[in-house]
Amino acid sequence: MSGIHVSTKINGDAVEFVCDVEETLLDVLRDKLGMTGSKEGCASGDCGACSVTVDGRLTCSCLMLGAEAEGHDIGTIEGIAKGTQLHPIQQKILDHAALQCGVCTPGFVVAAKALLEKNPDPTETEVRFWLAGNLCRCTGYDKIIRAVMDAAAEMRGQ
């Protein structure tokens, strides 16, 4: 089995890796690059815990081969806070106690950030449908939705 050499950018940094064809981007992030913030909850695109962005577009990293990352710009949970400065969505999740076990949280942060970049003023219904691919089993979603709405308001300067 010969590996594939891939050159990509992750959270703004140039990254090169060698992966097997079968390996997903999620496998590469977690097992090759030590970026374990993205989680494997299902490996079938049904839970969103592995959410990343590819050229700014929200994607499940379990539904993409590592090889497909060639030449693209990948964004992961590890790149969202700037040093110790949390993104407003991260801060609001803390403020609203919008997590219990926290394993789905990175996926929600990545997905919600992608939403607010596209739609800075979403309705509750829009937030709920955008995040329908992110499963949370602990919170019943209530506090997560409130946190995202509150982060949106803050980012709009309200």
Partner: peptide, 9 residues
């Protein structure tokens, strides 16, 4: 088809 994430692909 699928989630927002799936839609992206």
């Amino acid at each position: 088809i699928g989630s927002t994430q799936v839609q992206g692909r």
